[in-house]
Design a binder for these strands. Structure first.
Lengths: 247, 247
DNA sequence: CGCGAACTTGAGGCGTGTCAACCCCTGTGG
DNA sequence: CCACAGGGGTTGACACGCCTCAAGTTCGCG
């Protein structure tokens, strides 16, 4: 057996198993049988890695070797253009996969940064490819995740290309609360892990516009804001804003 | 042998081979050996389908069964929101793959429409998955294509989120001419296959702004426009516009 | 506890959207 | 051959949503 896969590449690495992970129902191995899950545990030596708040998980230009599944914490991804522009392209929470951008060129094309102290499962991609050729349901799941990422990005393109600031922020909040709810958190009370600037970058707005729009939502009785603590009091009203009720 | 795969599903279907296709160097089978290509020809029964100008290749909600490789012609893809908003998310030309949006949910999530009389290769996805589990270089290529689509979309997000109209149109033109050039067409003389409205939808602008920006580029000596016929006279200048020379 | 980062709010300017008029090109049918 | 219709494109005037710049406040981390 190749023991090199057991050598911790990063300081805080240890082996982990999908079959005993609390996120197995929303992470990569969704839809696998217990048997299949134990099989991939034995073949896919995933390790865990800690990433401190503010630290990069990887950066554009880094060699691509692994995908990363968020285990705990919260991440952002951002693209950078040659002339120094930057755009946040997504926020990732538990069970979501990072690193898909590197498969094409074997180098990462975006930056992935932890927004709070986080832990990820490191999934060596070569091993994943070998294994997905063997386990059909794993292959299915990998393709599904990549396809959904494509669809999600196209949804963001719709947002950026055709929505007003209020609609964008409403869409952002509803999407975030839906994902938090799917992980057992409250859908109404949210602690934002990102700055106004990061929200603005994601939504194609300035931080001032984000701040003003939060204030307007509060004045309209849709939610309470106090810095990063949000309490949504009227999700239906937010949905109406998203559907273009204002215009 | 299952003869059903030979039955033309659509009026103008016939079998085709990757190994003898003139696009094999820029399409799905890039990087496959001659032998591998002949093997997938024998196993992956792709048919060809004609799509008339203005007709849908597929629409959001359609059952997903196949990927499509553009053989001749030109397509656009567009997402629609519940409240009737629409956004063009890309334009596809020869050798590019359509339908990746359907893998995740087994239903197409976007509309794909021919912008001129076109032909596509129909690639049954089940068969492709089986085959890619067998042929590593095909698996590699499929993953590569999906990853690049993700990266491409993030590039569009950067464009939509942080660029001025002039920068967006410059980026659009340079991207289009690069892809045309890779297919052996002129990089300077372009016949646009889409309306100003479709360009605007893709770039998050109105058709009037697109039209005005074309006129400004012409006034600035970057190109000549006459309706859909474009001749780029100063690609370096266009690149400078993209890099934010104006601001 | 103190400092810097993050956030809020206001005033004014600018880029792009909106609305409208007009032109051009193409295809059709008398 | 011309008249006509209609979609696509251009251009102008004006409106408006968001950005920019600035000042002041609050928060949270070391």
């Amino acid at each position: 057996m190749d023991r090199s896969v057991f050598r911790p590449i990063h300081t805080n690495a240890c082996e982990v198993e999908c079959s005993s992970c609390n996120l197995r129902e929303i992470c990569l191995p969704v839809g696998l049988t217990r048997l299949e899950m134990e099989y991939i545990d034995s073949r896919l030596v995933a390790t865990r890695r800690k990433v401190a708040r503010g630290a990069p998980l990887y950066q554009a230009g880094d060699r691509f070797e692994s995908l990363y599944a968020v285990w705990t914490g919260f991440f952002k991804t951002a693209v950078n253009s040659q002339d120094g522009r930057s755009q946040v392209t997504g926020f990732q929470l538990g069970g979501e996969l990072l690193g898909l951008d590197g498969i094409g060129s074997r180098r990462h094309e975006v930056d992935a940064t932890a927004l709070e102290d986080s832990q990820v499962c490191v999934i060596p991609f070569e091993a994943l490819e070998l294994l997905s050729a063997e386990v059909a349901s794993l292959q299915l799941q990998l393709h599904r995740i990549m396809s959904r990422e494509i669809v999600r990005n196209q949804g963001v393109m719709l947002l950026l290309g055709s929505m007003y600031a209020e609609e964008r922020l409403a869409a952002f909040l509803l999407n975030l609360t839906n994902r938090l709810q799917a992980r057992g958190f409250s859908a109404s009370s949210v602690l934002l892990r990102m700055t106004r600037e990061e929200i603005g970058s994601f939504l194609g707005l300035t931080l001032e516009t984000v701040s003003r729009t939060f204030s307007k939502f509060q004045a309209d009785g849709l939610l309470f804001v106090r810095n990063r603590q949000i309490r949504i009091t009227d999700p239906v009203g937010l949905q109406q804003v998203l559907n273009g009720a204002a215009h």
